[in-house]
Amino acid sequence: MVNLTIDGRPASVPEGTTIVLAAATAGIALTTNVGCMGQGVCGACRALVRRTGEPEVRTALACETPVEDGMQVSFLDRVAPRRPHAYSETDLVDGWTAYERVLAVFPEAVRCRHCSGCDRACPKGLEVQKGVNLAASGDIAGAAAVFDLCVMCNLCVAACPEHIAPNHLGLFARRLAAAGTQRPADLIRRLHEITSGAMTIDADACTDKQP
């Protein structure tokens, strides 16, 4: 059995158990800071983790971190950006003004102090600071790519001393890149076939027999 402490409660669980499952056995109500239970994709189970013999305290997603003996874990609530970086869908479509939009919606982005706190905080190991700097210098596509696998856990929001909300900036870059540039030819042709009436569905035509 592996013994650890989670939010002040002792837990004793078999090896291989994740922190989230260990929390459940420790009598911690799993009603918040929890979600996908292991896929590591909903970003809800942010935690600070200190391992035995390590001075460092690291951030992690509890549902994909296996327990270790002597581990100390504190769950972290979701920290919302200090202010919403608000924009609307109409802000997304014009690629020529994308950079202006980035600077207007995320004015804090140019104030990055290069502390790398966001990089250290990211449980997915993304190069968050690089993404912020790319967006702030106008490389929207480059920034978008950095945040490909971001799960929006908001740990970088909490970590950023300049309130840049890096993941939301990254998502804005992603949305700008997609909405502003993606125009698939096959989709456009199919939409035309449908609106022109050339392609329809005969709902009665289908029988159980495979064609």
Partner: peptide, 18 residues
């Protein structure tokens, strides 16, 4: 006031405050 370099300081103090 936390400078941002060390995530446990920044995120931990926010969590305490919360």
């Amino acid at each position: 006031g936390s400078c941002g370099q060390c995530p446990p300081c920044k995120t931990g103090s926010y969590q305490l405050a919360h």
